[in-house]
């Protein structure tokens, strides 16, 4: 049922289109600037050091994924795809695949540019990245599904992505204990904690558990919203 050839066609089309999309490209360089800024500073504390990685996932994994989906609706190109032999699963697999590849390239780039110290346990580190990618691409897909235009994606997306992707930045401004406790379970903080513990050689099982739960829940939610909204 699912054809690799058709998925590849979607990936190539989306890739070409992104390369010519000035709005997306200018958004996509933000993590690179951040990495550059971090590299310039002498003493950067560990949690902040991983920020370019989380921001890469927020922007490239979630925000661009959402915008690309919303744009297909806004520009009425989705109907044509749906009337072709391409099925909806293939459209989403294609788009998610491209987002994943681009995010991974971005993460490698920010690590190199930011000269970010990576944990030695490459396998666990890779696993953490892949699980987080699943989380952010799912969030992006949901945002794309619920908004009708690219503009709407930004309006709905920015607050959502602040919460899910940059909560540790605001952590310092929050006084209340229980809010800190609760936000500690957000994917970005779990991800950063996981990396820190990996670096310090501490156990990471609990963080993997929380992240995996997020990933599974969000994938299920994505499929549910997708079935319900049918793109319209």
């Amino acid at each position: 049922m699912i054809s690799a050839k058709r998925i590849q066609a979607v990936v190539i089309k989306d890739y070409r289109d992104l390369l010519k999309n000035a709005y997306m490209l200018s958004t996509a360089v933000i993590p690179l600037f951040l990495a550059f800024a971090i590299n310039q500073r002498e003493e950067v504390q560990s949690p902040a050091m991983f920020m370019p990685i989380t921001i890469s996932m927020v922007i490239v994994g979630a925000f661009i994924q959402a915008s690309v989906i919303a744009e297909e609706k806004e520009k009425n190109t989705l109907r044509g795809l749906l009337m072709s032999p391409l099925n909806t699963a293939e459209i989403f697999i294609g788009k998610s695949l491209l987002s994943a590849i681009l995010t991974i390239i971005m993460i490698v780039a920010v690590i190199l540019i930011g000269n970010i110290n990576m944990p030695d346990q490459t396998l666990l580190f890779t696993a953490a990245i892949l699980i987080s990618l699943t989380i952010f691409i799912s969030i992006g897909t949901i945002l794309g599904l619920v908004s009708r235009t690219v503009m709407e994606t930004s309006v709905i997306g920015i607050p959502v992505l602040f919460v899910f992707g940059m909560s540790d930045i605001f952590q310092t401004m929050i006084e209340s204990e229980w809010v800190i406790d609760v936000t500690g379970y957000l994917p970005d903080q779990q991800f950063v904690q996981l990396l820190l513990q990996l670096q310090n050689g501490q156990a990471v099982g609990e963080h993997f558990l929380v992240l995996s739960t997020w990933a599974i829940a969000l994938v299920i939610l994505t499929i549910f919203i997708f079935k319900k909204r049918r793109f319209n």
Binding site: R16, D17, K75, N76, T77, R79
Partner: peptide, 10 residues
């Protein structure tokens, strides 16, 4: 359809 779109940047 009356609102079929093309990929304008391509």
């Amino acid at each position: 359809t009356d609102n079929t779109g093309l990929y304008e940047r391509l």
